[in-house]
């Protein structure tokens, strides 16, 4: 049986809700909260890294060419990256 990601019944709750597996928050995909997703237009991007720095989720990473993109498993769609990108390279687009 696959290990449960989190307890289901109260009896399964660890004392003090202690989590023994490091990095378990990665199992929680905050991407399901998203109503809009950020779309990058690399032709406008100046590779300043501001979006990367401001993303509260830490889900933006740099690719080999120095452009940026979000991991949509975790991107909550807050729009901060689009707001902070002053060359206007990021647009928030509604999820279908």
């Amino acid at each position: 049986m696959a290990e449960k990601k989190w307890p289901e019944t109260w009896q399964e709750v660890n004392p003090g809700c202690i989590v023994f597996r490091p990095g378990s928050s990665r199992d929680y995909h905050t991407g399901t909260w998203r109503a809009e997703r950020p779309i990058w237009d690399n032709s406008k991007c100046i590779k300043c890294g501001i979006c990367y720095l401001f993303c509260p989720e830490g889900c933006i990473s740099e690719d080999e060419e120095g452009y940026f993109a979000a991991d949509l498993n975790y991107c909550k769609g807050c729009g901060i990256c689009a707001h902070e990108c002053w060359p206007g390279a990021i647009k928030m687009v509604g999820e279908e």
Partner: peptide
């Protein structure tokens, strides 16, 4: 031997934590 104390409890676990 890292552990997490005082983690976030979303609505899907908070009630069970209270009962415990």
């Amino acid at each position: 031997d890292p552990v997490t104390l005082g983690a976030l409890g979303l609505p899907d676990i908070y009630t069970e934590a209270c009962k415990s």
